[in-house]
Design a protein around this nucleic acid. Structure first.
Length: 934
DNA sequence: GGTCTCACG
DNA sequence: GACGTACGTGAGACCG
């Protein structure tokens, strides 16, 4: 049927509808795997109702659903900030976008989206075409931006309120007719779409002006005539901005389309196809209705939810059992090719590497295992050896192995193929091994990181833990293969059958975990956390670790010697003071000397029956004038510096690179912080003068410098933001000394000439607040009576009632949900929050602290993820992260340029996901050593 | 292997 | 009214 007089076109604004359905309906997930489908369900119900009504008296002859195409439109070129402040779509809505397209096609309705244009433009164009052809148009939407199209046979229908909007409706809303809607919108602007408009002029004023002057062009031309001075000025000054705004809100109604109105003719849906889609979505009610309508039997939908939707459920009996005997040992190129074909057929593969050691900067590759579906896994040995290595560093390879370079050459295209997803458990390790063999593995999913996004605070994220908890399967323990202690062997010496079983099983476990976790990310609303904070960080950390930091061995060893001498002297003194020789390093012996032999006061035994001899206790004794504990404190400081730093650090200098390569554990802290180990470079001394000198051993090579940039007071700034404390926020904006400001608020003293002691107390309170303050803790920290400390806290909460409110709200939230969240959606589970007894206080403080510490951690993560791209053309390498500090190695002459870029990335890292109400500030330092740069 | 102590943010 | 307590880590030494 040709579109013309008597035809009736329905244009459904699909994107707007999805958003409304999403927000109006309770979150609904597909039972079998937790896929969010609430908006799809609402969308399908609407389409169904639509079809049912299609036989009614006002039935459409033609229809289409129009969606926004993702990506930029011409409006972004016109005005880059257009829709820039739109938050990203909720993560559980994102996967529903393609599903609604699928639904539209299943209903056999035309589904339209056009790149570079918004749905509104397509609707405008089609409406004009239909009107010009003499037909009628109903736009099914409530978007006010479409109201400019109303009139001459074009009407709107609000699908939620079932209300028709005609000419009068538009006039009611805008105060002008449809043809002047654009003018009014251009003046009023739109904060949702970030259309600037004329500042200070809203809908009412805009309509008034347009009605007075006729249209926008006349208004702008005769702006001088406006009586109100401010209004007049705005319209003259902002004329250009207003014109741009008009271009932004004005719909394109003359797009070139590659289809005709005739092709939109309404057609009966195909029952099979429609039911197939609906049952796949597991929409039981609508499946039944559609089946009834078409007079066919409803397709079966599995009733029992699968394990995927229940995190704690053990693997069901029908899931494939583990069978280590079924794994294949790959020892011919033909077999390897078959595996590679299988990977391409799948599009993804679980990968695991076996190596000669745990230090991925030293370890050699021994074998690779692959898995493409549960139970179907293989191991490709390439470096199994027998006997001792020969004198030339070569070794005796076991027979029946492919050559390492041939295997790597064959795997490289797969591992680097952007269309093949590589799945690993702690993929950073394997990626580094491959990187040292010239292979850049990407793209990757990591089950350890998925578990971290899902389960932080509930369980650990190691493979054994995850397998036992989520697959109900205990993998072959490493100990069984390698032994432990002195008799431990390396993987290249493991007997082949056992190696195949162990290695392939790891890949099998990894794949099964991935299949389970992937849909859970959506169901638990942590897809964004995983995709934006976890997955992209892993390769950044890998690069930092491989870069390593240069450490001067001579500096360390000289310091070690100096410490040893001093310690020996102190030890003599201590023994003399004690009147006998004993092991100063033994807290037990020290306690007995202090409290039994010398009968000093304050001897308190802990739960093990030993006296406590911590620094705080020794300090108290020293303050009373006792020599021995004072000397022990000195000795302990040196002992710590020597053993943990100057001695141990030397052993971590890599023979090949001369650098120290730490290992960052992305899942180490529940809050989202990193942890560092082997060695831990996040606790290099700085607080004591003597300890700080250890940082002189961290150096830059000749011609380069170290630069250090750290966030200033980031946790307090976050607290000011999340608790929404105006005075604190203002203090940060004014660049005040925040501790002095707190003291001033609390004690009513001026900031100028403040007693340092008063400021110190305020500082302790500020920190206490972040930690979930208690009178006891503050009293101990400040060494003041508990009642006094409690008085401070009470006064603090009186002055900042918003903070108390925030803390109470956070604890309440934790009790309701059994988790707390950072500003960026990271979940930290708090299963202990309902506990009774002393546990309760602990859990409360954790719940209060976690969102603050975690949000700060998220911010620096975001900065780190963006950093490689930001500095890619600069001679700079990111080396270290210490929670709120980043350290780079930079060419001497580029320091200032690098600092400028890095600072900007760090300070703007929260945006655009979160707009902070406080400025974020970063301090920078340059030096030849870390000591200087900090 | 558990406990204590102490280095950092 | 008593319980216990600042938040988050990693590592080395001692000791059974």
């Amino acid at each position: 049927m040709t579109f013309g007089k008597g035809s009736h076109l329905h244009l459904i604004d699909g994107s707007a509808f999805i958003f409304r359905a999403y927000h109006a309906l309770p979150p609904l997930t597909r039972k079998s795997d937790g896929l969010p489908v609430g908006a799809v369900s609402g969308f399908c119900n609407m389409l169904y109702k639509y079809i049912e009504d299609a036989s009614g008296h006002d039935a459409p002859t033609h229809a289409a659903v129009i969606f926004d195409h993702s990506g930029k439109t011409f409006r972004n070129d016109l005005y880059p900030a257009y829709k820039a402040n739109r938050p990203p779509a909720p993560e559980d809505l994102v996967p529903q976008f393609p599903l609604t397209r699928e639904a539209t096609r299943a209903f056999n309705v035309a589904c339209i989206e056009i790149q570079g244009f918004e749905a509104d433009d397509v609707i405008g164009t089609l409406a004009h075409q239909a009107r010009d052809a003499g037909g009628r148009v109903t736009i099914i939407s409530s978007d006010k931006d479409l109201m400019q199209l109303v009139g001459d046979g074009v009407e709107m229908l609000d699908p939620m309120k079932n209300k028709r909007i005609d000419r009068e409706g538009v006039e009611e809303k805008f105060g002008v007719g449809p043809e002047r809607v654009v003018d009014v919108q251009a003046l009023a602007g739109d904060s949702v779409d970030n259309v600037p408009g004329a500042p200070g002029i809203g809908l009412k004023t805009a309509a008034l002006l347009i009605n007075e002057f006729g249209d926008l062009d006349s208004l702008l031309a005769r702006a001088e005539e406006i009586k109100q001075p401010k209004r007049r000025e705005t319209l003259i000054d902002k004329a250009e901005q207003i014109r741009i705004s008009r271009e932004l809100v004005k719909l394109v109604c003359d797009m070139e389309l590659d289809f005709t109105l005739d092709s939109l003719e309404v057609q009966e849906p195909d029952a099979d196809r429609l039911l197939d889609f609906l049952s796949k979505m597991e929409f039981r009610t609508i499946v039944k209705r559609v089946s009834d309508k078409f007079g066919v039997a409803p397709p079966a939908i599995p009733e029992a939810p699968s394990t995927a939707s229940a995190p704690d459920a053990p693997a069901t009996p029908e899931s494939k059992p583990f069978d280590t005997a079924a794994y294949e040992k790959v020892s011919t190129m033909g077999a390897l090719e078959r595996w590679i074909d299988a990977i391409y057929a799948r599009g993804y593969v679980a990968v695991d590497t076996e190596t000669t050691g745990l230090d991925e900067m030293v370890a050699d590759l021994v074998g690779v295992s692959l898995c493409v579906e549960p139970g179907v896994a293989c191991y490709i040995p390439v470096g199994h050896t027998v006997g001792e290595d020969d004198l030339f560093g070569g070794s005796n390879l076991v027979d029946g192995q492919l050559a390492k370079n041939m295997v790597l050459d064959a795997l490289k295209p797969v591992l680097e193929d952007p269309s093949i997803l590589k799945i690993g458990q702690n993929m950073k390790y394997d990626a580094k091994i491959f990187a040292r063999n010239g292979i850049k593995v990407a793209p990757c999913d990591d089950t350890m990181l998925m578990s971290y996004a899902l389960h932080a605070g509930i369980n650990g994220h190691g493979m054994d833990t995850l397998s036992e908890r989520y697959l109900n399967h205990t993998p072959i323990p490493t100990k069984e293969l390698l032994g432990s202690g002195k008799s431990a062997i390396t993987f290249d010496k493991v007997e082949m059958t056992k190696a195949v079983a162990y290695a392939a099983e790891d890949a099998d476990v990894t794949l099964r975990l991935w299949q389970m976790f992937k849909p859970q990310l959506h169901a638990e609303r942590v897809t964004t956390v995983y995709e934006t904070l976890e997955r992209p960080l892993s390769p950044v950390l890998a690069r930092m670790e491989m870069a390593g930091v240069l450490v001067d061995r001579d500096v360390l060893s000289r310091m070690s010697n100096a410490f040893a001498q001093k310690m020996a002297g102190l030890e003599d003194e201590i023994h003399q003071l004690a009147g006998e020789n004993f092991n100063v390093g033994s807290p037990k012996q020290l306690g007995e000397i202090l409290f039994d032999k010398m009968s000093l006061p304050g001897g308190k035994k802990g739960k093990t029956g030993a006296y406590a001899t911590g620094a705080d206790i020794l300090e108290d004794l020293a303050a009373e004038g006792h020599e021995l504990p004072a000397r022990v404190l000195d000795w302990r400081q040196l002992s710590k510096l020597k053993s943990t730093y100057t001695d141990a650090l030397q052993t971590f200098i890599n023979a090949e690179t001369g650098r120290v390569h730490t290992s960052y554990l992305q899942t180490g802290a529940v809050t989202g912080r990193l942890s560092s180990s082997d060695p831990n470079l996040q606790n290099i001394p700085v607080r004591s003068e003597e300890g700080r000198r250890i940082r002189e051993a961290f150096i830059a090579p000749k011609g380069r410098k170290l630069i250090s940039l750290d966030y200033s007071q980031i946790e307090l700034r976050i607290l000011a933001h999340v608790a929404n404390i105006d005075s604190l926020k203002q203090a940060f904006r004014d660049g005040l000394d925040i501790h002095a400001m707190t003291a001033s608020e609390m004690f009513g003293v001026p900031i100028e000439g403040m007693d340092p002691m008063v400021r110190r107390q305020a500082k302790a309170i500020n920190f206490g607040v972040i930690y979930g303050i208690s009178g006891f803790g503050l009293a101990r920290n400040l060494r003041i009576p508990r009642a006094e400390a409690q008085g401070f806290i009470d006064r603090y909460f009186e002055r900042f009632p918003g903070i108390k409110q925030y803390m109470d709200d956070t604890v309440e939230f934790a009790k309701d949900h059994k988790y707390v969240q950072t500003l960026f959606g990271r979940k930290i589970h708090t299963p202990e929050i309902g506990a009774k007894g002393p546990q309760a206080g602990f859990a409360k403080r954790q719940a209060i602290n976690a969102p603050i510490q975690g949000s700060a951690a998220d911010i620096i993560r975001r900065a780190m993820i963006r950093m490689p791209e930001a500095i890619k053309d600069l001679p700079a390498t990111m080396l270290l992260q210490v929670h709120d500090e980043l350290i780079f190695e930079v060419d001497e002459d580029a320091c200032d340029a690098v600092i400028e870029v890095v600072k900007d990335v760090m300070e703007s890292a929260a945006a655009p996901a979160v707009h902070l109400d406080v400025p974020i500030e970063v301090d920078a330092g340059i030096g030849d050593t870390w000591a200087e740069a900090h």
